[in-house]
Design a binder for these strands. Structure first.
Lengths: 154, 154
DNA sequence: CACGTTTTTTTGAATGACTAAAAATAACGA
DNA sequence: TCGTTATTTTTAGTCATTCAAAAAAACGTG
């Protein structure tokens, strides 16, 4: 999913059975450039190209593209919905508990380690979603620095 | 966590270093009676006992109890935050994609199968959260019934 | 057990994220 | 080029949740 050309993006949109429009192109490009973005951020980026775009259009496009399978929507606790272009592989995410930064995590432990709950209470399991929570490198640094300043001698 | 007595609930609240108040008791009891409830539902249930309680108080109590470790908050995508009394064990959840019903799922696959992502991108992993998505028994029935009615002969 | 401090709740209002509906506009097959 | 259908704009509105100030309640102390 390396920086796609306008043509590739257009093909993706048309290939999904959707009409090609400027907002769709801009949204798909924006999400491709920076992953795990929320609707507000996408809106800002789209605005740079298409100054007359409405926020509602961005919401509409994001759900259309998500429904069409071109985008994946994730909703980590405490954060607005975020979107990514990486679909079709069930990878997971790690979210920084301090700043909210999100990174992809490949599902390494076997293929579908968590896909089979012991007691599913009669549910038919469709998917398993794994979210890791932790401190991103930058926040680890900041926390370490803050601690050094706060307690000179403990 | 079988139907706790008022005394047990009071002890839990005090034991967590919190002042004992009627709203706190009522909220803790409500969540204990029915798990995975959202703030609105808790509010309704509390209202039955304490007719003058405000929604804001319920929100405040829910976060106080959560911060104190007496409740756990989960936020499945597309649903308002929900609360449960089962804390101190890292169990997971299965959510019905059709009606939103939630059930507990014990973490069976090993102890912490998903706790060790392959590439954590430099993050310090604190916890892993697993959410399964599927159809609850009731919705399986309804879907089956609807299909039978909709397409008599395919 | 009355008092005062501190915490909690009420009261009243506001925010952020997102959805709804109708009217205007743009895509694309014919 | 047109007409149908899909999409976007415009204008409102909803839901879940948070904020802030004032009133009330909890509990250690005297």
């Amino acid at each position: 999913m390396t920086v796609a050309t306008t043509e590739e993006l257009s093909d993706a949109i048309r290939g999904a059975g959707l009409r090609l429009t400027a907002p769709r192109l801009a949204v798909l490009r924006a999400v491709g450039e920076k992953s795990h973005v929320d609707a507000g951020t996408v809106f800002e980026r789209v605005l740079a190209d298409l100054p007359d775009t409405s926020v509602q259009a961005v919401y509409g496009v994001l759900s259309a593209l998500t429904d069409a399978g071109l985008l994946r929507r994730i909703e980590p606790a405490g954060s607005p919905a975020r979107y990514e272009r990486r679909v079709d592989d069930n990878h997971h995410h790690i979210v920084c508990t301090r700043c909210g930064a999100i990174n992809d995590v490949d599902c390494v432990v076997g293929h579908a380690p968590c896909l089979h709950p012991g007691n599913a209470s009669g549910y038919t399991v469709q998917t398993a979603e794994v979210t890791f929570w932790g401190l991103c490198p930058a926040c680890q640094d900041e926390v370490a620095r803050a601690e050094k300043t706060a307690e000179p001698v403990s």
